[in-house]
Nucleic acid binder design. Structure first.
Length: 799
DNA sequence: GCCAACCGGGG
DNA sequence: GTGTACGGTTGGC
């Protein structure tokens, strides 16, 4: 009997030591193609045999089958899926089960997936192979030894039915980039494009990468390439085994694909898959990263590369809609642009893709699947299935929820208005910590594998973080430790989601999930009252964090002291951390607030009440100034911001664009003409009144209210953007004919109103009084102070 | 104006 | 044989 620690290691990392696996392609006939990279870097292909297997809840459907064709093993324990059935050929195995089920049910059952999922578990062939052999990808193979390539298409537009591919950029395994482009001298554009696609695909096969990467690879490049090759009759083949065609696999975030039975499955989505290469989309890595980090300004390639410091400072920029037009004038510029793109995609894949790489060394699934799977269904569930199989323990059947509602986290708003000396404290990884501290796991997990996996991942993560810090900055070693840490974090944070996902995961347990949130609310409530007992004023608390205001006599050390005093009272493994301190906070509504950092003049605004794309620039600017002044305790400054904005409007000192709002046009001219009788819409009225009769759905415009009605303004920042509508030629660029009364009113109603909680009623009226009425209390505002109003304690449950 | 549905990306 | 959450934006009444 192996000891518990060794078994737990096997649950997490598998047990077969085969090194260097870079791709697996298995089929139900029991054949597995395994591509490996040797220590010398050479690629070898090994053709393996394995025994396909399924798990059944009953052996009844197999009574008719002779024992020599397949083997049935009854697993231990109370789990419903207790018969492990194996055969040399998985298709024969499926046929036997289906024949038995058809007899029993008196109707034809054509596919294992039609059987209720609580009676049958049948994995994809690769998953069967990896789970039963204990093999995993990339053992002893550092990320740097993977042979990676990137492929990026430049097209005339976004629709493969009508647009063409005119350039293909390829990032090579040696780190260089190259481009292939259409032969413009050819008469026949179809032949020219077909020739380009043939050359590009041949080049990919020649470079022979283990992994193909790009940003939105599965959402754009591959489906576009698939459709163009189909239309042009070019073989869409770039795998390592040309006898195996490029195939599709169902994937919720794949591209929509046409199915023969559109009526039955109208919205099928799929991703492409090829034998011998892993197709990895950096957009998945970006989304996964931002899911926990929440620090990215967007998920586009350029903006992420820049944010992570991966972009060359002089990289070429071309707006998407203009790429083809630029190519015709200046092809060298587009080549440089496309090569910058593949280099950034390669850097991004290396920086954020490490987590999936680390997961592929643990979970029994293909690397490309671990790169895009949700962590709960795609990583934790396969780990548990392999653990139960390894222990010869029956698996519990999938079970729908019993109707118990999933309860949520706590959200409290304790006070509104302006507070000073603000501290933010929060509990890191609250839910995993509670699960570990109180041993809350799925009730049907007889092996205790779930909590053991979470415990080990937390320990491994701490170790990886420590090693990452010790490693040389920027080294491959540091990268590997950081990736490991990111992968562990991902899985640990998904553990709670796993419990709650009753319709998705095998061991889901809504009662356990509710116990976690209940403990979470308890901890939040306790830390709030303990903080309050130490003399601070609570402002807002949400799930795992709290904002409070320290008394004037407190030093920063005192602030830190109360946080650590309260930390000491929390359950083991649950740690309250001091996260930050701010000079002031305007608390408006739950999750709508402004913070002023020490030494800063500009506040940080959070929540829909303070930021909206529809807000006109003059109002946003006013709000920034006014909130900044209010947070600094300068009520006269708020008044000054208001008066100067009103006067600037009245004197027409503000440019027209300052009062204009950005709108997106969704209706075509015809569609609006049809609906105009029922309802007039400001944006389209502005277009018509400005003499614009032609635009397309998806275009944008700057719209404002003039004295004579809605008008379109000229956007100087979008001068050569073809998707931004501009007024007829000859109209003034900045007419400043806006409707002053309307914008003065809007300033009060839509912007000044965000400051009501920070001032008492009289001060508010005084601050926002008509600038032309002489005040009766000229001196009052100099002495006015912002206010903070404690609310009756109210607790709300989040949905 | 309010709430539900949708989106996030790619040329 | 898949499946995030969340904050912001759009679109339908």
């Amino acid at each position: 009997m192996t000891d518990r620690a060794t078994r737990e290691d096997e649950w997490l990392f598998g047990w077969d030591p085969t090194p260097g696996i870079v791709s697996v392609w298995a089929s139900l006939d029991g054949r597995a193609l395994v591509w490996r990279r040797t220590a010398e870097g050479e690629l070898v292909l090994e053709e393996e045999r394995f025994r396909p297997w399924i798990l059944l809840s009953s052996r009844d459907d197999l009574r008719h089958v002779g024992a020599h064709t397949l083997s049935i093993e009854e697993l231990a324990g109370p789990g419903e899926l207790r018969f492990l059935v194996r055969a040399d050929d998985g298709r024969a195995l499926a046929r036997a089960v289906l024949e038995g089920a058809s007899r029993r049910l008196g109707r034809r059952v054509g596919n294992l997936r039609e059987l209720p999922k609580e009676t049958c578990l049948a994995l994809a062939p690769e998953d069967q192979y990896l789970a039963s052999t204990g093999r995993v990808y990339f053992r002893d193979l550092p990320f740097e030894r993977l042979r990676r390539a990137q492929i990026d298409l430049e097209t005339t537009g976004l629709d493969p039915e009508v647009d063409r591919i005119f350039l293909v950029a390829i990032g090579r395994p040696d780190g260089e980039a190259e481009t292939h482009e259409i032969d413009g001298s050819t008469r026949d554009p179809d032949a020219a494009e077909a020739d380009l696609l043939e050359r590009a695909l041949a080049r990919v096969r020649e470079l022979d990468p283990d992994v193909i990467e790009n940003h939105n690879l599965h959402g754009f490049d591959l489906p576009f390439l698939a459709r163009r090759t189909e239309l042009l009759d070019v073989p869409f083949a770039f795998g390592r085994d040309r006898t195996i065609p490029t195939s599709k696999r169902a994937s919720a975030r794949g591209a929509r694909v046409a199915t023969p039975d559109q009526a039955a499955h109208p919205m099928r989505r799929a991703r492409f898959s090829v034998a011998g290469r892993e197709l990895v989309d950096t957009l998945d890595a970006v989304r996964r990263h931002d899911f926990s980090a929440r620090d990215l300004p967007g998920h586009g390639l350029k903006v992420v590369a820049k944010h992570l410091g991966l972009a060359r400072s002089d990289r070429v920029h071309i707006p998407g809609a203009r790429i083809f037009e630029v190519f015709r004038r200046d092809p060298a510029r587009v080549r440089a642009y496309a090569m910058d793109d593949v280099r950034e995609a390669a850097a991004l894949a290396a920086t954020l893709g490490g987590a999936a790489f680390a997961l592929a060394r643990m979970a029994p699934r293909r690397y490309e699947r671990l790169a895009d799977a949700g962590a709960a269904t795609g990583v934790v569930d396969p780990l548990l299935v392999r653990a139960y199989l390894r222990e010869r323990e029956a698996l519990p059947a999938h079970r729908e929820g019993d109707g118990t509602a999933h309860s949520g986290a706590a959200l409290h708003l304790f006070a509104t208005g302006v507070a000073t000396r603000v501290v933010k404290a929060d509990v890191a990884s609250l839910y995993p910590s509670l699960m570990r501290s109180f041993r809350i796991g799925p009730s049907r997990d007889r092996l205790g594998a779930f909590l053991s996996i979470v415990d080990r991942l937390v320990a491994l993560r701490l170790e990886a973080k420590r090693l990452g810090k010790e490693a040389v900055k920027g080294s491959a070693e540091q990268h590997a430790h950081d990736a490991m840490s990111a992968a562990m974090k991902l899985v640990v944070n998904s553990a709670y989601g796993y419990l709650g996902a009753t319709s998705l995961t095998r061991f889901a347990d809504v009662h356990a999930a509710n116990e976690v949130t209940r403990r979470g609310r308890e901890v939040l409530g306790m830390l709030c009252s303990e903080l309050e007992a130490r003399g601070v004023t609570l402002l807002e608390a949400d799930t795992d964090g709290v904002y409070f205001s320290a008394p004037p006599a407190f030093s920063e050390d005192d602030e830190r002291r109360v946080v650590s005093e309260v930390d000491a009272l929390l359950p083991p493994l649950v740690r309250l951390e001091f996260e930050g301190r701010y000079a002031a906070m305007l608390s408006h509504e739950p999750k709508n607030y402004a913070l002023l950092a020490y030494g800063a003049t500009e506040p940080v605004l959070r929540g829909v009440a303070f930021r909206s794309s529809r807000a006109e620039p003059y109002g946003e600017e006013f709000l920034r100034r006014a909130v900044g002044a209010l947070l600094a305790g300068d009520v006269q400054g708020v008044r000054d911001a208001y008066v100067s904005t009103v006067l600037a409007l009245e004197r027409r000192e503000l440019p027209t664009i300052a009062v204009a709002s950005r709108v997106r046009l969704t209706k075509t001219p015809d569609a609006y003409a049809a609906s105009r009788k029922q309802k007039r819409e400001l944006a389209y009225e502005a277009l018509l009144a400005s003499g614009i009769t032609r635009w397309s759905a998806g275009d944008r415009a700057l719209v404002y209210r003039s004295k004579l009605g809605p008008r379109v303004a000229v956007d100087p920042d979008a001068e050569d953007d073809p998707r931004v509508v501009r007024p007829a030629q000859g109209s003034p660029v900045d007419p400043r004919d806006y409707d002053v009364d309307s914008y003065v009113r809007s300033l009060l109603v839509n912007f000044a109103s965000r400051l009501t909680t920070g001032l008492d009623r009289e001060d508010f009226s005084e601050t926002f009084a008509d600038p032309h009425q002489p005040s009766l209390f000229a001196r009052r505002l100099a002495e006015a102070r912002p206010i903070l109003t404690p609310l009756e304690r109210r607790a709300e449950l989040k949905a």
